[in-house]
Write a protein that binds this DNA or RNA. Structure first.
Lengths: 227, 227
DNA sequence: GTCTATATTTTGATAGAC
DNA sequence: GTCTATCAAAATATAGAC
């Protein structure tokens, strides 16, 4: 697991690892090619020998990361099984991918905030593969009668956001550890995954009625928040 | 209300609005003081008249944003009521804060990825106020017998992450609208809030099984809130 | 493939007039 | 409070030797 200083591999591999770390920690503009090169123990000119530009390097890293995730969830779906089991595995696969490339969550969060300015179509298509798989799992579950109807994108956000948030926030939690209770800063990884699995399946288990027609008590009837 | 080009208010107000937009869209390093000044229709020197540095400007904006959220959830808690109702309002309040200052979600996502490098203690203390309120609500619900035991931080992530993800991803969804089905890019805001409320309460309604046993036998509870 | 030097722009910040 | 002019440092990218 090459992570911080990327001490192993070819110069190109070290470069990719160093750049991922730098982009994740400082963002596209905050990442400096000098620092990336130094971290990879290569010269700055070598960076431009391997990649056309800083942006191209960035895109290659992100494309590879999303490709890995897409591959993982595709494998999950190909494995088959009941829809709820597939969904659990889908969630697990995404969590695993976040661990496998530890700089992925931070880069994803940043790219969202960035409005996708550095994404090209090929990268977005990898992202689309992921949500397509989720859509199929949800559809299968619906036909099997174990899932209610939901918007796949809403479900996707409910899954991905907490997982990425949790992974990416490890440094900030560590940094301000002294200001918050210990249990708060250090939930176990399995706790998050289990929580996401439980909440996602709970939302799917209850058959959703069409908009605004609570045939069964959809909300607590006592209080209606907001007016 | 003032959002993009901040055409109104004093020069200081325009500056703050322009800076928030710029920091949200480009990040701390990507934001350029020249652009901020131009956007606020002031001179760059005016920026340094009002703020000691780019970093100080950034921190003031973030502190104000977190302060607003903390104030909103504090008001929710002070209002009292059953714990489940308070929790719904807590979630609603955070969603509302994200709408009230539309650049808040992107800045938050970035700051997490950044490892909190630009945060000072006063900002983190505002963040802590939020999770403390949540902790109290969860505790009250537990004592009332309507919530099971949970890690407040896990719950907090499950609430905040989807809400911030959704708000911050509006630009990227718009940008790549042509690559994904229409319904996927445009879920309604209420859909997300309702989803977060439903999933969070579902996770709390079920008494937790013992740690680390998310085996497939565990069925998601049917959604049922008491009132 | 790898490196040293350097060109060219951009950028955060300030001085000082009004 | 507001502006013009400007500096000094930093940053992306390239040229060209080995």
């Amino acid at each position: 697991m090459v992570s911080q200083s990327a001490p192993n591999g070819t110069s190109r591999e070290r470069l990719l690892a160093a750049a991922a770390a730098e982009f994740a920690a400082r963002g596209f503009d905050g990442a400096k090619v000098d620092r990336i090169a130094a971290r990879a123990r290569i010269n700055k000119a070598m960076l431009y020998y391997h990649f056309h530009s800083k942006a191209a390097l960035y895109r290659d890293i992100l494309r590879q990361m999303f490709g890995t995730v897409a591959g993982a969830v595709t494998a999950v779906h190909a494995q088959g099984g009941p829809a709820d089991v597939q969904l659990r595995r889908f969630i697990e696969a995404i969590a695993r991918a976040a661990e496998g490339s530890p700089h992925f969550p931070a880069m994803w969060l940043r790219e969202i905030a960035e409005g996708g300015r550095h994404l090209d179509e090929s990268i977005v298509l990898e992202m689309r593969r992921v949500i397509e798989i989720l859509g199929r799992i949800l559809h299968a579950g619906r036909r099997a009668g174990i899932f209610g109807p939901v918007n796949p994108f809403v479900t996707q956000i409910g899954i991905v956001a907490p997982l990425m948030f949790f992974s990416a926030s490890a440094p900030i939690r560590e940094r301000f550890r002294h200001l918050v209770p210990a249990r708060v800063v250090a939930p176990r990884r399995e706790e998050i995954v289990a929580h996401v699995q439980a909440t996602t399946l709970a939302a799917l288990a209850a058959p959703r009625t069409r908009a605004g027609a609570p045939s069964r008590s959809r909300r607590p009837p006592t209080r209606r928040q907001r007016s």
